[in-house]
Amino acid sequence: MAAAAPRILVLGGARSGKSRRAEQLVAEWLSRPPRRAVLLATAVAGDAGMAQRIARHQADRAQRLPQLACVEVGRDLPDALVRHSQPDALVVVDCLTLWLAQLMAPPQTAGALDVLDPAQCAAEIDRLSAALRAATGPVVLVSNEVGMGVTPLGELTREFMDTQGRMHQQLARQMTRVELVVAGRVLVLPPRAEEVLT
C-alpha cells in the first residue's frame, strides 16, 4: 500500500520566515523531476500597502522559484485545493490567515462579499478540512500564529484569533508534520499529548 501524501502545516509570526520555509519545501519537492508545484495565493489587495506587499512576494518567488505556478484563489480555497491536487503536484497554500480574514472581514475592494458569521466560518473550515482529506497529492499549508500575544481588545479581532486557533488545531490533526518558524529557524512540533501517551 502506498504511503499517504505528506501534509505539512507551517506556522509562524509576521516576517518569521514561514513563507521562505514553504519555498524550501517546494525546492526539495521539485528536485526530483517530473514533479510539479502550485501555489494557491489567498491574498487580496485591500489597500496600496497590501498591493505592494503582494507584488514584492510575487517578484521574490518568481526569482527564487520560477517553476512554481501561482493561482490566485481568494475565498475559493477548498475547491481550488481539490482541483489542483495531483499525486505528482505539491500544493502550497499561502496563507490561511488571509483566507480566514476574507471570510470574516473581506476588504472593500473585494466587492460585495458577505461577511460570514461564526457558524458559516466553521462550515468553511470544515469544507477546507474535507478538501484536505480529498487531496491526492502533498500539501503545505502556511499560516500566521497570532495567538501568542496580548488578547486583543476589539471583538472582531478576538473572534478572529479564537477562530484561527481552532482552525489550526482542526487542520493539525490531519498533518503528517507541524512546524513552527521563529526568526527563520524551524521547530518541528511533537505530536499531540494523547498521541504520545498511546
Rank of each mutant, 00 (worst) to 15 (best):
A2Y: 05
M161E: 10
P34N: 07
T198F: 11
P33K: 10
I125K: 11
H168V: 08
S16K: 00
P152Y: 07
D117R: 07
A37Y: 05
L116T: 10
G74P: 11
A112W: 04
L40I: 01
L128Q: 09
R83V: 02
G149H: 12
L39D: 00
A123K: 07
A89Y: 02
V188S: 15
G137E: 06
P138E: 12
L90W: 00
R56L: 06
V196R: 14
R83A: 14
R166S: 05
V188I: 13
E124K: 14
M50T: 12
L90A: 01
S129P: 06
A55M: 09
R15A: 12
D47G: 07
P138Y: 10
C70I: 12
Q170F: 00
L100P: 08
V146N: 09
V139D: 08
L153F: 09
A172Y: 08
P78F: 09
P152V: 06
V140W: 00
Q174S: 14
L116H: 11
R158V: 14
L189V: 06
M1H: 13
S16L: 01
L113W: 05
S31I: 02
V71K: 03
P33M: 13
A3S: 08
Q58A: 15
Q120G: 11
Q170N: 00
P191Q: 11
V150M: 15
G149L: 03
F160Q: 04
G49T: 12
V92D: 01
V181Y: 04
P78R: 12
A131L: 09
P66A: 03
Q63E: 14
V139Y: 07
E72N: 11
A48N: 12
P106A: 12
L171N: 05
L98R: 04
C121Y: 02
A48T: 13
W99P: 03
L197R: 15
P138N: 12
D60T: 13
D47E: 15
T42Y: 03
A101K: 10
S16I: 00
H168E: 01
L65Q: 01
S19E: 08
D88K: 01
R53H: 03
D114H: 13
M175S: 09
L90P: 00
L189R: 08
M175K: 04
L100S: 05
N144L: 02
A112L: 10
G149I: 09
L180F: 13
L68A: 03
V142Q: 11
A69S: 13
I8G: 02
V140T: 03
R15I: 04
L103F: 10
D79Y: 04
A22F: 07
S129K: 09
T151A: 14
G154I: 00
R83E: 14
G184I: 06
R61W: 01
V91G: 00
